[in-house]
Design a protein around this nucleic acid. Structure first.
Lengths: 155, 155
DNA sequence: GCAATTTTGGTACTAAAGTATGAGGATAAG
DNA sequence: CTTATCCTCATACTTTAGTACCAAAATTGC
């Protein structure tokens, strides 16, 4: 598109030059007789072609581009996505049942609730919970919840 | 700065014109005698001033300013910032002591710990805790912790 | 198949949590 | 001054949580 536009200007420039050759020839006959007018004639040509040059340049030449970078601040909502801390979870060395119990524990369930949920006896849950406390180095379910959330091993 | 640069070009252009007046006068004496050379003379002037015009244009022309908008993502709230949910806290209608107890409760403290921390008896703590459960509509400290964290009324 | 671990469950006991009820002092609002 | 709310504490009781110790299936790894 730009190349086509440039080419059009070149053609236009060529046509103008052709027309000028005739115009100048005619002017030459007019002014050459009056010897003093040669300066004005030359000046007129100089002025005309200067303007022509400026016009051509302004239409053909690639414009200088100054890039102005404007930084637009976009407010991004904090993701608040839970990312499981796998390394901390591995350190605790909990087996799958203990981890299941911990998750239900943290939801506020009682031992009886957890037992019903997992189809186990309360005795079994108590055993798991005790082992859980030992491994987590805590002494109560509230401490277990607090620590588990701090370590990001549960949601 | 740019205006100064433009002005310098205008001065330069003026000086070049002044020099050309003398050059042309001299050329005029040389070529005017040979009548056929007048066309070459005019052509040379036309060519010269066209190039001059182009040169002037290329130096004076204002650069095009392109505005490039760069989107910069800014995280407004770092994920770990706690913002207290005041409205939810007001709904619960907890008095100051109850709220104090709740905070210590959520840290994993036992009733005895809380009592020692606030210089109160365990009986008092039990009373506060019971009232707390009633107002929060829960049945155990684990549920209280879970709900309080969900409602964002404690850290 | 054997050893190690996991998972399950029990009993017995202690500790802590939670409920119900009452009550006295402090404080603020009407 | 009275009323209401808050804050404190106590007793008596029930429930739940937690510990200690044991033991038997089930599963996994070599």
């Amino acid at each position: 598109m730009n190349k086509l536009k440039d080419f059009r200007h070149v053609i236009l420039y060529g046509l103008l030059l052709a027309m000028l050759i005739f115009a100048l020839k005619w002017l030459q006959w007019k002014f050459v007789l009056v010897d003093n007018a040669i300066d004005i004639y030359i000046g007129a040509i100089a002025l005309f072609f200067t303007i022509l040059g400026i016009w051509v340049a302004s239409h053909i030449m690639k414009p200088k581009v100054e890039t102005l970078i404007v930084e637009k601040e976009i407010i991004v909502q904090p993701p608040e996505v839970f990312t499981l801390n796998t390394s901390e979870l591995q350190k605790l060395n909990l087996n799958s049942r203990e981890y299941e119990v911990l998750q239900l524990l943290a939801k506020g369930h009682s031992n009886a609730d957890i037992a019903a949920n997992l189809f186990l006896s309360v005795s079994t849950i108590k055993t798991h919970v005790s082992n859980l406390y030992f491994k987590m180095d805590v002494k109560s379910r509230t401490q277990a919840i607090t620590k588990a959330k701090q370590l990001k091993i549960i949601e």
